[in-house]
Structures are given as structure tokens and as C-alpha cells.
Design a protein around this nucleic acid. Structure first.
Lengths: 101, 101
DNA sequence: AACATAAGGTTACTTTATGTAACTAAATAT
DNA sequence: ATATTTAGTTACATAAAGTAACCTTATGTT
């Protein structure tokens, strides 16, 4: 695999969004905060991977994690401004899928 | 991994676009037909996987393959109407990446 | 006290996807 | 006969994803 002159930002964006589940997780958060188990139930993803993806998204500043120290513990995830900006992208994919799939 | 009520078309779209390299291949074809080696040179992808992805995209009707029986052989790939419709999606990702990455 | 429950994970292990490098086919040129 | 070129394919190694069992904390039940 050799190096190229491909736009590094587009490349980075695809590394994120092109990772399995990432866009669908963002999609789940598009209409407001959700808890870990809610996301897990709404997608055919395993807890292991959901945990991994949420960490990545948090590190990228796309998702924000809020812990409520109740019993049992409650953790909510919601999109940051950066994440909300992805609405257009995911919306575009949704539109395309409705027209062509 | 359990079943969900997730929109099957969006789900399918993400299975395609969320596969490594797929969107970047489409991006490479956005400004006209390209040959196998041209795509391979413009992306850090291996020939093995490029071949696999192009077959998938062809099967999905996103990419069209044209063989020119010259010597040496020449094969061109270009987007179908369905593939061209993805310009907006990939363009949206590009826009987002420029603003947020 | 002993056990169960619940959320939000983590760990160990298996299967699938991706990356690497060498090889093939066809037609021509040296 | 050997080399060159394009567009792949094959065999093998490594990385990522899937599965299932387990952990922690704080309560609630027997």
C-alpha cells in the first residue's frame, strides 16, 4: 500500500464514518441523547464494539458522554456540535438509499 | 447481535458505503472514468481489495466496467446514474471534513 | 447472610476482513 | 526464448469484528 496525494481530511473522515457502525450510531443520536442500552437495543451491534465506537467518537469530539451516578448507573450519549453537523451527511445517505436501494 | 427495527435501506447503504475504501473509490470516479491502475495509484489500497470492491460496486449497479480488448488490455470503470447520485453524499462528507477535521 | 437484579461495561476466544507479496494470462516487442 | 504491460488472482499473515461469559456498584428479596 503506497502513499497518495488524496485529501487527508476526506481520508480521515472516511476512516471514521467508513468504520462499521459509526454512522448508524450517529444516526441513532440524531434525535436526542440516548443511553448505552438504548443504542445497543436499536442496532444489531455487540456491547463490546459499541463501547469501542463510542470511545472513538468521544475522542473525536463527535459524541459527548455524561454519567449520572444513580443506581444503577446511567450514562447518556449525545452529539456535540461537530456531531450534529453530520446530520446532513447521514441525511444525504438516507435520501440516496430511499431513492436507489 | 439481535435484530432491530432499523430502516433496512439506510442499513444497506451503510453496509456499502461503510465498507472500507468504497466511498473513496466512488470519489475517484466522480470526475470521470478511470482505469484499474489509475484508481490503484490514487488510493492506498491493494489490488486485491480494489478488485473485490469494484466487483461489489458493479454488482450493486453503482459502477460500470468496460473492457477494451487492446494489448495490453484496458479496463475502464465509471459511475452509473446510481453511482453519480452518490456525488452529493461524498460531497457532503468532504464539506463536513473541511469544516470539522 | 446469600442471592438476584440492573446498567454499563471488560475479557478471552473465534471468525471474518484486510494487507502483502508472488504469480497468471494474453499479445506483442526484442 | 525472454521481457513487457495491464488487470487481475492465489496463498498466506495480521488486524478487526463477533460471541459469550464475567465484573462492579448499589440496592432489593428470601
Amino acid at each position: 500500500m503506497k502513499e497518495t496525494l488524496l485529501c487527508p481530511r476526506l481520508s480521515k473522515a472516511m476512516e471514521l464514518l467508513g468504520k462499521r457502525w459509526t454512522a448508524l450510531i450517529v444516526y441513532q443520536l440524531m434525535d436526542g441523547a440516548k443511553r448505552f442500552n438504548e443504542i445497543e437495543s436499536s442496532l444489531p451491534i455487540s456491547g463490546r464494539l459499541l463501547s469501542e465506537r463510542l470511545k472513538e467518537l468521544e475522542k473525536e469530539g463527535i459524541v459527548e458522554r455524561t454519567v449520572f451516578s444513580e443506581v444503577p448507573i446511567r450514562v447518556e450519549y449525545n452529539l456535540t456540535e461537530k456531531g450534529l453537523a453530520l446530520k446532513e451527511v447521514v441525511g444525504g445517505i438516507e435520501t440516496w438509499s430511499k431513492e436507489w436501494l
